[in-house]
Design a binder for these strands. Sequence first.
DNA 1: GGCTATGCTTTTTTT
DNA 2: AAGCATAGCC
Length: 679
Amino acid sequence: MSRWTKGLNPEQRAAVEHGEGPLLVLAGAGSGKTRVITHRVANLMEAGVGGEAILAVTFTNKAAGEMRERLQRMVGPAARAVTMSTFHALGLSMLREELGRGRKGKGARFVIYDTGDQLACLRTLAGRLRLRRTYDLEAVLARISAWKNAFVEPGATPEGDDDYAQVAAIFYPAYEEALRALAAVDFDDLVVRPTRMLEREPACRERWAGRFRHVLVDEYQDTNGSQLRMLRALAGGHRNLCVVGDDDQAIYGWRGAEVRHILEFERDFAPCKVVALERNYRSVARVLELANAVIAGNAARHPKRLVPTREAGPAVRLVVLEDGDAEAAWVAEEIEARLRERRFRPGQVAVLYRSNRLAQALETGLRAQRVPYRVLGGRSFFDRKEVKDLVAYLRVCHSPADAISLRRVINFPPRGIGPATVEKLAAWAEAESQPLFRAVERAAEALGPGDRALPALAQFWGVIGRAARRLREGGDLLAGVQALVEDIGLHDEVLDSAQSGAAAERRWAGVADLLAGVRGYAARAERPSLREFLSQITLADLDKDKEEEDRGERVTLSTLHGAKGLEWACVFLVGMEEGILPHERILNPSVADMESGDLSEERRLCYVGITRAKDELTLTRAARRVLHGKPRERAPSRFVSELPGTLLEVVDRAAPPPEADVREHLRKIKAMLGGPGSG
DNA sequence: GGCTATGCTTTTTTT
DNA sequence: AAGCATAGCC
């Protein structure tokens, strides 16, 4: 028995000790999944497999980081040689390296478009295709993404689908062409394009498949079609592919993940060793009972139960509060009491919710109780306008061909270059078959020598030129960015454009955070470059540095998606209502939605939330909640109302609804006291 | 042609 | 509550 199999149960040990060939680990929640992966890697290394020959793929940077840390604790610095990465980050390095092989590595100069950039791109295309404003571009984008991940070429989209698919079929070729012209790749490209190269170019396949002698995949139930093909291309030769997952925790169907990948792995990679981990080491028995009961409501699944190894624990509570604010306030008070009584440290507590919008009220409640917290995930940071604007400047400096970013900043801060001028520039560029930035460069030619916008354009292009020079390889990245911020007068712009002092402060904090991110990156990176920084901020969390700092000192707020793979001693699962969990959009799918709602995925989401709790679990719901502006009576989530009463201890703290005239009276009093929210 | 204010809508989850 | 589109104003 090797040192890495001591203390494991027989199934875990079998998975860790398995040698060559396909391995499927069906790992129930809390069954020691990450442990199996890290121990397996350590065991392989002890058996003489070099760290550089091992690839471990996860879905989030958080998971990758956590895994690396655990491995480091086990094998020390040798862990650094192991590639631990997300599919997207792996695809990015493959793309950079492969495209960099071309003459002078020119092809490797590209930017990564996130969803917002993709939509901006579609919006400009809509104008050009004369399809303006008629279509839900997000729905179009969803179709295009699905096609890309299924390797459907732009000209070969299936006919006879719904209206949205027909519109998307028009957009798709134009979109792909646009990305090429913009020197941009989207998230899907990061997996699809390297996979295509692996499949088509034997030399490329040799380089990468030969490099990784063992491939391990976490959360396999969340792989989509292109990711599976990438794995096939990488591990199809030696077949040393170990996948770990749980069909009950498949929660990414909406972005193309297919549960059947894990259900069919045995057949896909036969002959294949299968190990099932059902013993749960995480949660007290009462939590597991609830989890088992909730997930049993799903028909299509590997029937299995989590087997408890711990004591019964306290009863799981379902607490009913009056409204959303009362719910948040009550949760915050409960948490504060637990911290005060030293029953938990902040880092052991989490509040989980279905959608990000529930976070605001909770933040308010926790602030009121002076409970330190962090909000996990939520792309919110990069969605902040001032951050996006600054990043767009940096992108234009790095790659002037990025016309989406160029359009974003050409008149920011406002300098008198309006839509009409931009369209003239675009028309000239189109006619001359030149990128948009050439039109800016040669504005006199594009607009005519007397145009009013010429000075502004010259000034703008001067700013970009200066910044680009400062930000070139080898320069001081932080100083360069600071000088750019200075040059565009971002500080004044943020101050002037904000409605209030507080808003200005918040906005400037966004810029400051980005600068801190640059500083952190420059300190961390071996060879800091603008290109690498831009890639990282699109793919990863900038808050990483901040998180490391105070690990364990803060209560976590997270969506259910963001919470997967994590655990806390004390968990609050809020918003247990029809319309929130399960989500409205699943119950009443709109025409733009690709497939009719998948209720089973919502149930799995609920299951994921429940199984995050180790010692104590509380579910809450509000009897009324303000949604779409108006307060509405809320029905309890079917996931709890259909359960036998023995599994939950129901606590009703909601007052009966006030009569309409009383409510009106209250509203008037509140208005007199200075409006709602002033309390 | 460009900017600003007002009125209007709008809400899933993430790489 | 915030973001977006439209309309009106400079």
